[in-house]
Amino acid sequence: MDFDIVRSFVDAMRSAFGTSAVLFALAGVGLNVMFGYTGLLNFGHVGSLLVGGYGTAITVNLGGPLWLGILIGITAAVLLGLLYGLPTVRLREDYLAIVTIAAAEILRLLTRSSALEPLTQGVFGIQKFADNFYDLNPFPRGSYGVWRITWDANTLWAIVVGWLLVALCVWLVWMLTRAPWGRVLKAIREDEDAARSLGKNVFGYKLQSLAIGGAIGALAGVFFAVQSQSVNPDSFQPIFTFLAYAVVILGGPGRALGPVVGSILFWFLLSFTEAVLRQAVSAGFIPDWLLTAQEVAAVRWILVGLGLMLLITFRPQGLLGSREETLIDAR
């Protein structure tokens, strides 16, 4: 096969604005409320997505309307956020990280279990429950896009709705965080004892942050479920949360638009490296003893991991953060 850098670029662009980017932008906006603004280390964010996705799928599967499913999914995620917070928010941040990752795993294992199969359909998951969404698609059949970066009508419909949702959530977060409410959140992120000494109910704010972040996460889960018309327990692995962290940290924690920029860039870089590596391997530029085609996926994760380590250490404010803030860190 020929080495075709233009094709890699087209693939990367499609990825950067496609459904994955929407999914991670939404998930990132939710995570940003908790991690970016409040400094809460929620490592079980994927649990909110699971709850949102399954809430929708199960409701529709049992004969309920799609909108009710979405509502149930989001409500469940709000409750999950409170559940995460109640035992841990008063403790050191490490405990929240451990408990949330464990709770998200419990949820995944439960949806997988044979005991809940009547509801969740176990490892096979639930499919074909969002026809109503695609019935609303205003785009006639065909291919849409710019140059070679194109999508079919249904994907385009999902992407358009998805980016609108992202815009809505970003607007909400921006409204909240530029208000005095956001000021308190940022104070808690920096020093919760200071916030407490000034009469702020830190516990309450943290719970609110977890609930709002969880609700937006659930919306990401709903988008994922509806767009792909399927939910499966193993789509909700812990690694999803870690990728969402990479997205938020890349874009700039504590910036309303950070996760959006982060997600677009993240998916562009990830897809581009993968496409280039794959082509390089199959064209023989990279010898077989060094890397095989199957191992390219692993290289991606190594790069993500390295990027995460380097960014959080050397540019914790991300792309959108101000340099001034970092200088203060260095003091």
């Binding site: 409204m175 000021r183 308190v184 009469g199």
Partner: peptide
Amino acid sequence: LGATGQSGEKVFGA
């Protein structure tokens, strides 16, 4: 941050 009685510090007030 030290001020009290700011309704914008409530999540819906914001």
